[in-house]
Design a protein around this nucleic acid. Structure first.
Lengths: 233, 233
DNA sequence: TTCATACTTCGATCCTAACCGAAGCATCTT
DNA sequence: AAGATGCTTCGGTTAGGATCGAAGTATGAA
């Protein structure tokens, strides 16, 4: 039975706690140095270096040198999506490392999931889109409706250039703190970028939390109203 | 950094070669006994038993007793989807256990991927659907068009009951032998079931290969014509 | 009851890989 | 040139877990 792709190799790479912590840290979407990742993984720099080269060989991360630093990122969107999928599955089986949901309330409210918004606010955004008919769903796939394109345009985001990419336009991602789905894909990414650019929110320097300003919060809530609790599981 | 789902646990479960082989065998969609899985994993029955209980604790598989046999299956569609995702990612990074593509030509031509058709025929089916406008794609997501519903109806499959399920209707799955996408989801499952019921094909008893009869092959090829090579990567 | 089959549990072995200290290399600063 | 910082490589230790033999349990057959 030696047919097929070597899933054991990917599994082994993700299966080590130090590497898993590093990958989780990289899900924040920012490039991190080897030293920062060593801290995230809870190991010394030497050990981290060994882990990082294994992750790179496995195609999960990539690095670029910049002066005497080495910045590491997830290899590409596919790597991020893979980790999201595994996180969602792990959460669905109750494999949480501590209590259900992040201890930090800010993380629970809004955080970065690779390149898009997760947490309470991420879930609310998708709920709002679905309840207003901007996005339609058939079980798991999501698609933007014709009318939805216009609605998103009024927020200040042009959908057209987002479609050409090889990544899907929109895609649901199981949220481990809310146990509901939030919006991923290029649209999810564009929305988060938009909020950050407009100054409605900023990234926390220590964690994956996204901190909204009072004004940003007001605008967000009015842009994404909830008509009634949606029936999505 | 102990936030979030425990992806390391899932990774560890998949990361052992014996377990990975067992899971791959279960992707065939059929319930297998502990003895069969031990052989698939290349280990003794004692070792397999230990692996199987770990996989069950982790929520990847489930078992049901039947007389003195224990039949194991993947826990649910989510587990199958997760493995498909990892297989696709592994294949995309070139992590194949042997030469690219299965050695067995029958496997390369048509095989089962959990519950739907993969291999050359699986890819052709999706290509045909896309080129004829039965299925439309936006990057990665797939959706059946209105007109497509009727077309699929003429094959003898009613799309309506397939939508209600919690699994997506259709969904692309990266094929590791063809390095292209084939059709998964409830529609993919229904199509495969249809072929088997009609007697156009049957499952090989030893491997995941799907063996078409000459007549079944003729019907399949006429049902899924290729107009021109599609540009999908 | 006795035997056979299917599987689990226990116990011991063995091997891999994670780990860190120390040393080495590269880049930047002064 | 000398020192500091960021990271990698080497070597030796150690722990976890994969493995299997042997014994134990459950179900079915004779």
């Amino acid at each position: 039975m030696k047919e097929g792709p070597d899933i054991a190799r990917i599994g082994t790479l993700i299966g080590d706690p130090a590497r898993a912590n590093m990958l989780t840290a990289l899900m924040g979407g920012q490039a991190l140095t080897a030293t920062e990742l060593a801290q995230a993984g809870g190991v010394t720099l030497q050990t981290a270096s060994s882990h990082l080269s294994k992750l790179e060989d496995g195609g999960l991360i990539s690095q670029r040198k910049q002066g005497r630093h080495r910045y590491f990122t997830l290899a590409d969107g596919a790597a991020g999506t893979l980790l999201e999928n595994i996180m969602g599955f792990a959460a669905s089986r109750g494999h949480l490392r501590h209590q259900p949901g992040p201890r930090d309330p800010a993380l629970r409210k809004a955080r970065i999931c690779y390149d898009h918004l997760a947490g309470d606010y991420g879930v609310r955004m998708l709920d709002s889109f679905v309840s207003r008919g901007v996005i339609r769903t058939d079980g798991e796939n999501l698609m933007v409706t014709e009318q939805g394109r216009a609605d998103i345009g009024t927020i200040g985001i042009d959908v057209t250039p987002l479609v050409s990419s090889r990544r899907p336009l929109c895609k649901s991602c199981l949220d481990w703190s809310e146990r509901r789905s939030h919006l991923a894909g290029t649209l999810g990414k564009a929305l988060l970028s938009h909020f950050l650019e407009k100054g409605w929110a900023r990234r926390s320097s220590e964690s994956r939390a996204v901190l909204f300003t009072p004004e940003g919060e007001r605008k967000f809530l009015s842009l994404f109203p909830l008509e009634r609790p949606s029936p999505e599981p």
